[in-house]
Design a protein around this nucleic acid. Sequence first.
RNA 1: GGGCGGUUAGCUCAGCGGUAGAGCGUCUCGUUUACACCGAGAGGGCCGGCGGUUCGAAUCCGUCACCGCCCA
Length: 908
Amino acid sequence: MCAGPRETMMTLDSRFAPAEIEPRLYEGWETAGSFACDPDSNAQPFTIMIPPPNVTGSLHMGHALTFTVQDTLVRWRRMQGRDVLWQPGTDHAGIATQMVVERLLAAEGKDRREMGREAFLDRVWQWKAESGGTITRQLRRLGASLDWPRERFTMDDGLSAAVKETFVSLYKEGLIYRDRRLVNWDPKLQTAISDLEVENREIKGSLWYLRYPIEGEPGRFIIVATTRPETMLGDTAVAVHPDHPVYGPLIGKRAILPLVGRSIPIIGDTYADPEKGTGAVKITPAHDFNDFEVGRRHNLPMPSVLDRQAMVTLAEIEDELTAVPGVADPAFVRTLAGQARFAARAAIVAELERLELLDKIEPHTNQIPHGDRGGVPVEPLLTTQWYCNAGVLAKPAIEAVETGRTVFVPKQWENTFFAWMRDIQPWCISRQLWWGHRIPAWYGPDGTVFVAKDAEGAAAQARDHYGHDEPLVQDEDVLDTWFSSALWPFSTLGWPEKTKEVDRYYPSDVLVTGFDIIFFWVARMMMMGLHMMGDVPFRTVYIHGLVRDERGQKMSKSRGNVIDPLELIDNYGADALRFTICALTGPGRDVKLGASRVQDYRGFITKLWNAARFCEMNGMRPDPAFDPARATLPLSRWLLDSVNTAIREATDALEAYRFDEYAAAGYRFVWNTFCDWFLELAKPLLAEGADPADAAEIRAVGAHVLGLILRLLHPAIPFVTEELWDRFGYGEPCSLIGAAWPEPAVVPDAEQARAELDSVARLITLVRSVRSEMNVPPSKPSPVLLQGAPAELLGRVDRWIDAIRRLARASDVRPLAGEVPKGSAQAVLDETTVVLPLEGLIDIAAERARLSKERDKLAADAKKVSQKLGNADFVSRAPEEVVAENRDRLEAAQSEIARLQAALDRLG
RNA sequence: GGGCGGUUAGCUCAGCGGUAGAGCGUCUCGUUUACACCGAGAGGGCCGGCGGUUCGAAUCCGUCACCGCCCA
């Protein structure tokens, strides 16, 4: 639980201890219901649907990135008073989960086929019950403020109802249908997969040149080049380009298919590229996507010669095996039956070589399609599968992005989206798996299909169709996991029930995800959302990059460079990890991240903690009655004005999804403004003997601004900010999460305060710089004499004398009356010459060098500017204010040069 | 082959028409009572090459090179 009032006044430890604090605060928020949306509220909703992680999963760096970004947005909007729904849940991840459980079974010496479907599914559910909570527990450690009671699972009853409703509805519209065509078949997993689940890998292989005898013309051959000799058993044609000078005339003749002895036509088709290989290609319609199209165009037979395990099967060509002396031997072909495809390849090549039908072999590198899960080459296979007509569904989705109803951030990703959507292919949605949404289709004895939400519905349809009851068998297959994911933005809200959540939270505001998932998920949610709900599923799609290791390498188990976010949280705290992620997440960029980066940014968390400790030690306490508009001290006003800027920067950055700028704005303000200047300048005002009224105001302002800092940074670093908020008693325990996002406040005379503090800071920095360059030890304070200082500066110096003494190690600061003492160090601040009498302490030669360097630098600058101003075109064409600015610059440089020169002259 | 992104300080990256920036690292100095996970100061860049547009280019256009992704 959160720190109670009792602890509020306790002295802060010198170190922030995330491991002790984070779990307690998270539990405090969660039990208080701080993450919950309120469907009955009047506030404007803000909705983000979590990309549901796989139930099999555990938190990896990619999750850490995406959920940090989302949590930052969600916490910020919540503080702005929006009714936030951040919808949690997990995905059943069909293939991935089935593989995990099958591996577990294999370790026990069991096989799912032996167990049977029902027992296997029981086992998966059991496994889900045991391990499914891992990732949600880990998300809590990251600090993700998800509305947990609303957690959904893609296989739960409600979401299954949404899947059935959608399937039936699309089927009725003809947008879901069965088709027999080539699919990408994964022979290892033995299921069809979609185009997207295929990844091409470059493999060094060979190009085999095979000699096919021309029928009726002994001794004459047509040479075909192929990368897949083993499929030749299923060849049903040889194709050549109609304009091919040598082979073109052969069109219309026939060739004898070696080994098989089948007579096949030589056809003309522009698919045959005259430049590639020999210009002639074998056509195997059942085992190659391009050949399939050729086969369709030419009405070719399409025998399959590889089965579902990618082993040779002769069932469809058995009858055609014909002995042709020197060309085909059925006995040899029969030995191939049951051989794995690559073994069969070797045997076939050897046989062709023996028959002198192998012309040559060339080394050849080509792209081999692999299943992304199974990792083995995909085999195009002729099967009947369920398809979704993505072409029709894509059109409104394309239009929605074109017209800006949904906007991608960064915008360039819209091109990626368009490119895919405009050329989208039918989506194969059936999978030969057990774990997943079973396809709601039933078959009668004659194969008639009845699609309905349940068995009763199908039975009723069958009764109408047959005129009596017939036994029906449900389709064995399940749906592609992405089918249910596509419905996530509305299925989680209770659809197809009419719920107030659907009304209120659909469409969602932002979808946050990686570019690798635009096709798999974003595009499909767009299609399904628009079709089923009549509106886009989200207004904005924020696309972030990938997390890479420190060297920019993709993280992978095989590379051994995987970083575990939980380990980083253990070592540095969730805040440090989150802040690092925010700081490194620029638009359209991958995030290079390693432990050392997190360690660096942990320094910021510690800095904030220590600044708060200082505030506490100096009696800064929240005062609800404090009115910033009534602050009188320039330091107060300057700080209040600065924090206004920080608030604007942070808010603008978050509006623009610039997490790097948001983090930088917070970092800069806390470290460079609040700590380096405000707290340092405040020290003399808080010291013993200082004016009590001034001290009181500084305490109040400090506490006020610390409170603003905590609110400003809470979205990125929720734990440390909440802990400090609670300890200081800014609000009830665990209330920062619900505190209002800061707004800039009116600061009277801000301009004046800025000018004053700015010139004091510049003077201090200048003196520090001179002392450091002259190697004056800090233990030796020096007087600071001001020559030609305007009254305004002298007044400021007077007001800040204590701070200047302390920060610039000045023994005294006063106007210079008379000559510059011998052996002084000098520097120029606007119209003032700053003199440090350090006779004996400084090296005159070094001082001369320093001043000359300074003068030369300015002279170079002045020269550049004066050249510019000497250019008539510049003066006449550049905007007036730019010209004026340059004139001012030249003037300032010239007068500074004169003062530096005077200082040099004094050195003698 | 087509497309996208990148190339800026040693490293990681901002900046995307008007004087080159930050963080980290480096070097020097420091027992200043919040913080050494600190403070102060300094050094460090033909903004990938070549053309062009412009009074003015890291920034816009063209082109080339290299790196990384995506699609065929």
